[in-house]
């Protein structure tokens, strides 16, 4: 056990020394893993942003009841009370003209000047109705909606289920595509890492031959190579995390504003610390897997 530990310690020391002696090979391997994880990270962050929007829309308002100009807040509350009596309704929120204007301002972000000259009370008041999950279709055919349209004070009823469903479907498709893309990127990353490690192994063939010559076991030789892969993978992941952080700082705010402007929700968030640790672990795993594949093909006794 102690001998194994010592051998392991030497393997670690020699691996680090070996990498330092081959900076070009190290740079190549780390870059390969870094680029692969950078692509994967972009896909992941994009997919998560899409998933957030999808989730937000999927569980949000399903029906908007636009009220007439002559409807005062008390009348609006009465209509809201009638709607709330339905079992399928989860929540009814009154949006005053001022609230609607504020929302519009917020969604326009940096382009608020478009609203110059528009009166704050120009937008109609409305009731936003959220249904319980799975009842939007039912609501669409419900006689209640027809009756509501004929209710005095109600200008129009917009059942948003149709286009929300389409949007949600689109977003979910995008998410599925992103996951598929992430898988492809991962496979490409493993291949890329494997090829790079193979090159690195080629550069180390003399060292490996000498190790065998002096009586190194296969476990020792392979452990040597796998540890190199692990360190290179972790370094590559660190590189990718740094690049993603810079990228996020550069275009993240604009992307968030755009998403919010178009969809009314969503943000382009960066990794939390736990996810960065997972990214580094993923990089290390990629390095080990790539090394393993390369060993199996090219370092057999």
């Amino acid at each position: 056990m102690i001998r194994t530990l010592r051998a392991g310690t030497y393997a670690v020391r020699r691996a680090i020394g070996g990498m330092a002696r081959r900076p070009l090979v190290l740079a190549l391997s780390v870059s390969a893993i870094g680029v692969a994880l950078l692509l994967g990270g972009v896909v992941f962050l994009g997919a998560r942003a899409v998933a957030n929007v999808s989730s937000s829309w999927g569980g949000g308002v399903h029906m908007v009841v636009y009220l007439g100009d002559d409807v005062n807040p008390e009348r609006a509350q009465a209509i809201a009370g009638a709607i709330e009596e339905l079992d399928a309704v989860e929540e009814v929120t009154y949006i005053s003209p001022a609230d609607a204007f504020a929302r519009l301002e917020q969604s326009l972000g940096g382009r608020r000047e478009l609203l110059e000259g528009v009166e704050h009370g120009a937008l109609p008041s409305s009731l936003e109705v959220s249904f319980a999950g799975g009842v939007r279709d039912v609501a669409g055919v419900s006689p209640f909606v027809d009756r509501l349209r004929k209710t005095p004070g109600v200008e129009d009823v917009e059942l948003v289920s149709d286009w929300v469903d389409r949007l949600v479907f689109l977003l979910r498709s995008l998410r599925a595509g992103a996951i598929g893309l992430a898988l492809l990127v991962s496979l490409a990353a493993i291949y890329l890492v494997s090829v790079t490690v193979r090159l690195a192994l080629h550069a180390r063939r003399d060292e490996i031959a000498i190790l065998r010559l002096v009586g190194a076991t296969e476990r020792y030789v392979k452990g040597h190579v796998l540890f190199d892969g692990l360190v290179q993978g972790a370094l590559g992941a660190g590189l990718a995390a740094g690049a993603l952080h810079l990228l996020h700082g550069w275009i993240g705010p604009d992307l968030s504003a755009t998403m919010s402007g178009i969809l009314g929700t969503g943000s382009f968030a960066f990794f939390v610390p736990r996810e960065i640790v997972a990214l580094v672990a993923l990089g290390a795993t990629l390095g080990v897997v790539g090394s393993w594949l390369a060993i199996e093909k090219h370092v057999d006794a």
């Binding site: 194994t4 010592r6 051998a7 003399d206």
Partner: peptide
């Protein structure tokens, strides 16, 4: 069949390192 980047001592040490001897 030496590793040119290593010192003479390290080249010889390789043969002993694989045995897990104390440094």
């Amino acid at each position: 069949r030496l590793l040119p980047g290593l010192s003479a001592l390290d080249n010889v040490a390789i043969a002993l390192e694989v045995r897990g001897l104390p440094r």
